[in-house]
Design a protein around this nucleic acid. Structure first.
Lengths: 338, 338
DNA sequence: CTGAAAGCGCTTACAG
DNA sequence: CTGAAAGCGCTTACAG
């Protein structure tokens, strides 16, 4: 055995069994805690393991148990997504829960045109389940996962009844913020929105519209500009809203909103005096800009934890359902004061 | 066999051998391409595999070959890092190369106080090598990896001769930008820097200082404010630089720089007329702010590719050395014009 | 409470 | 060029 240690080789369950004069079965049981075993034997084995810093080979275990203890995480691979702290926060929450439950997280980045990295993971049977971090109407990965019949859960919303999702209370939160702004005197509202193929955008849009209708605002006082995927498109929309005479502009995401802030500054529009500005997603930038911008704060890390928990429950065979997790904050800041 | 397919069970190499009337050995060889095998047999096997959409079980392969085909990626788990697109871009490049070489990437997030997630991966032998995405003076993970004797490569710089790193040409790029600004008439330079425990910060600082000294600037015309880890610390530094009469302020990162931009706007300091502003790291925010901000553009995705390539070379037993990859752009924008 | 044995799905000397 | 057999390091009925 001292040979083994010199060669930096690693102990196997066999070595331990031999060393302790018991069978591999017994060692295995002492480690896993499954099956009948005397306290005395269990302690002997565990002491030895501790002392020699033994750790079972996860690959061998996987093969024997027919499970990998790996979770796949599908992340968008585009430039735009890299700028969005949402995905890294989500990943943090996922990794935290996965790690605590002895699972590892394996990344696959997909684009609108290719799910090659996901395909590899699936065909190699390298994961027990998959977490998808974004839902779009045209998502290749969802179809791929459905046909594969591999457990998966979506961080976000999907109207597809076949997909299990966990989401923030996007729609409700957006409705609440919008109502609040209307109550405080906003009458001519403009919404600046991103890509409507992303369900997160449509959820937010619908929350906005719900609040407008509930408040009895006439249609002509609600202006929507959606699918603003370029800087120029966003500026055109902003310009149109200014000409129309909006008294409040809300952006579906923080990226669009900091762009709006910059544009309005250039146009010498004073916020909040001449115009109120708010965002449906927060960022440290909006919190610290001048003026600071009112927005909704969601905790992506917590969402990640919830999603991962749901994934693990599913893998244990529990019945799980789609739904939202509570918890968001309306951050009222200077951009909507007065 | 039709039974197998009905039960959604998956083919094994055994099934194929039986079906084709050959041995598992032969099937294995046809798949891997290793060992002598007749063209005819190889084609027969490959056709069957194609037709039945067979894919080898990666776990079994791992056990037999004593390698996992997994790479670990160590990512910082703090809030601050989530806001930084660098890590997601880096990850994109890493995943691209890994995937193309049939490796998967497994995430572990570590904080300054805990490398628990990394520890799990290491003791479970779940990866063949590790990529570390950030280097700090007090990094637990580097010590951990050195003692483990597992191959690893660092994306970034480290002065430790035992660590293999790949970095952007940070120092050179920063020196070049600084020289350029001095040439264009800046004489009283202030540097606003982040955490000096991060080697990326010290590299940039040193590049800045090199250029200042090379230009023969007297020490009293160079003011350094480092370790600005809070908003208030940064604002104090900015205020001090304004009082002193700096004619150019450079920030080591884009985060600090957008904060500076906001502060200077509040103080009614007009840029570039009264003061020039530049950043050692670019972001879409700096590119689209008013005024747009001069900065250095590095390609984190490319760095990720290079780092992963180096990792794979090392795993193949090739001799690899630390070094930088070429390629950065000086983005001259409005904030330093005139 | 414990152990001998078969099995998870591959790879790889070795022999022919 | 092909195959029988041992092996990778675990788990888990089954028997005692």
């Amino acid at each position: 055995l001292s040979d083994l240690r010199e060669k930096k080789q690693v102990y196997t369950i066999d070595d331990i069994a031999r060393e302790l004069g018991v069978s591999k079965t017994t060692v295995s049981r002492a480690i896993s805690g499954k099956g009948r075993i005397s306290d005395k034997t269990r302690c002997r084995v565990q002491d030895f393991i501790q002392a020699h810093n033994y750790h079972p080979n996860a690959v061998a275990k996987s093969l024997a148990q027919n499970r990998t203890s790996n979770l796949g995480l599908v992340l968008p691979g585009d430039e735009r997504a890299a700028e969005d702290p949402f995905f890294q926060d989500l990943m943090g929450g996922i990794c935290e829960v996965a790690s605590a439950n002895d699972y590892d997280v394996l990344i696959s980045m997909v684009s609108e045109t290719s799910s090659a990295q996901l395909d590899r993971i699936l065909r190699n049977h390298k994961v027990d389940g998959v977490i998808v971090s974004r839902s779009t109407t045209n998502a290749l990965e969802v179809d791929r996962l459905l046909q594969e019949e591999l457990p998966f859960v979506l961080a976000g919303y999907s109207p597809d009844p076949r997909v299990l999702y966990v989401d923030n209370e996007n729609q409700q939160a957006c409705a609440e913020l919008t109502s609040l702004l209307i109550e405080r005197g906003c009458h001519r509202l403009g919404l600046l929105g991103g890509d409507e193929r992303h369900y997160v955008t449509t959820s937010r849009r619908d929350g906005f519209l719900t609040a407008c209708h509930q408040a009895g605002l006439p249609e002509e006082d609600i202006h929507l500009y959606m699918n603003l995927n370029s800087f120029s498109a966003a500026e055109e929309a902003l310009s149109a809203l200014l000409n129309w005479g909006a008294d409040c502009i809300i952006c579906t995401d923080e990226h669009l909103c900091s762009q709006a802030l910059d544009y309005l500054r250039r146009q010498q529009v004073s916020i909040p005096q001449e115009l109120r500005l708010a965002s449906f997603y927060d960022s440290s930038l909006l919190a610290h800009s001048t003026p600071s911008v009112t927005s909704l704060h969601f905790d992506a890390w917590e969402l990640g934890k919830a999603v991962c928990q749901r994934m693990l429950s599913q893998l244990e065979g529990k019945e799980v359902q789609s739904g939202t997790i509570p918890g968001y904050h309306i951050m009222l800041r200077d951009s909507t004061m007065a």
